[in-house]
């Protein structure tokens, strides 16, 4: 085999491994005479079985990206490919159903995402009905019971209502609803933000197990950097709609290149009363002299990439 051919097969292999690829995604919201640029030139990939964490402050466009993927927002330009199928520019419901099959979402507030008038067993079974899984009601109920055991809710609670559960349990039910249709990708938008620390740990451990057991990919959207680092294989840092830096958790946390990433990491409150972020150099986009619009991707090493201009890349490299 010639070298070129070898390279080609390798290329195909890595492509097969990619579950979701977002390429140059732009999402603008046009309001009365004003254009809000929520996402600009976003590109990233999620491999099969991988967890990709999106971090950034509120308003940085984390949720917008999640919504674009699931189809709640119609992307202005760019492409989103899931399982090789193009998700942008979908014309009708049939096409939507066909192409989005395999993507599920877990929301932040389990109380507002579960129908208060329905029994939780029914809420989860509804997902099966919509997706035509299971031939009879009995069979579907059996599948629901299995998934309830998996997320740690006793099956005898299946005919209770959302109000009867605690926040953590409700989130488990939300996760059960997403899992029951065997999705390939789960978009978890701030799914632990509303939970208490001890319950957060339970849910995070559970997600971790599910990931290892089923090989489901996750897009984990969160502002909690510690949790993102803990749960994610790779991380993307968002600011003002731009994806500024991506890489594995270690690449980002041990060797941040972009000044914004640096300031973000430096600001994480530490669990140690002696070691605390003190006067960190505050990153201010307006005075930093950086113009995100001029940036392009620079490869650092491995999967580590930074969005900046050539000049900036050279400068930041020097400081290391």
């Amino acid at each position: 085999m010639s070298k070129a051919e070898n390279k080609k097969t390798k290329q195909v292999k890595t492509d097969q491994n990619v579950l979701l690829s977002v390429d140059d995604l732009c999402m603008y919201f046009d309001t009365k005479g004003k254009r809000v640029r929520a996402s600009e030139h976003i590109s990233f990939k999620i491999n099969k079985g991988e967890t990709f964490g999106l971090v950034g402050e509120s308003g940085s466009g984390k949720s917008t990206i999640g919504k674009c993927i699931i189809g709640l927002n119609k992307a202005t330009s760019g492409s989103i490919k899931f399982n090789g199928l193009e998700l942008t520019g979908i014309k009708n419901r049939k096409e939507y159903k066909q192409k989005h099959n395999g993507i599920q979402m877990i929301f932040q507030d389990p109380m507002s995402s579960l129908n208060p008038k329905k029994q939780v067993g029914e809420i989860v079974r509804e997902a099966l009905v919509i997706n035509h899984i299971g031939s009879s009601r009995e069979e579907q109920e059996k599948i629901v019971a299995e998934i309830f055991t998996k997320v740690g809710i006793p099956t005898e609670y299946m005919n209770r209502y959302p109000k009867d559960f605690s926040g953590g349990q409700r989130q488990r039910i939300g996760i059960a609803r997403a899992l029951v249709v065997n999705p390939k990708l789960i978009i978890a938008d701030e799914c632990i933000a509303a939970l208490d620390a001890s319950v957060q740990a339970q849910i995070v451990n559970m997600l971790h197990h599910i990931k290892q057991e089923t090989g489901t990919s996750f897009l984990f959207i969160s502002h909690d950097l510690n949790m993102v680092r803990f749960l994610s294989d790779r991380i993307g840092v968002l600011h003002l709609g731009y994806l500024l830096e991506t890489g594995t958790s270690d690449e980002i946390f041990k060797n941040p290149i972009h000044p914004y990433t640096k300031s973000l990491l430096a600001a994480i409150p530490r669990m140690n009363p002696v070691v605390q972020p003190e006067k960190i150099k505050v990153y201010d986009y307006s005075t930093s002299g950086i113009d995100y619009a001029l940036g392009k991707w620079h490869d650092v090493e491995g999967t580590h990439r930074v969005w900046c201009t050539d000049l900036e890349y050279k400068e930041w490299g020097k400081q290391e």
Binding site: S166, G168, Q169, D196, A197, S198, V199, Q200, A201, Q202, V204, N205, H208, L225, N226, M227, R229, F230, S249, F253, L265, I268, R270, M271, N272
Partner: peptide, 20 residues
């Protein structure tokens, strides 16, 4: 021990069983 710290290595998080 339920909250991961930046300096922590990955692994299982300790979680308190049950709810308040």
């Amino acid at each position: 021990s339920a909250i991961p710290d930046v300096s922590d290595e990955k692994g299982e998080l300790y979680s308190i069983p049950g709810t308040p």
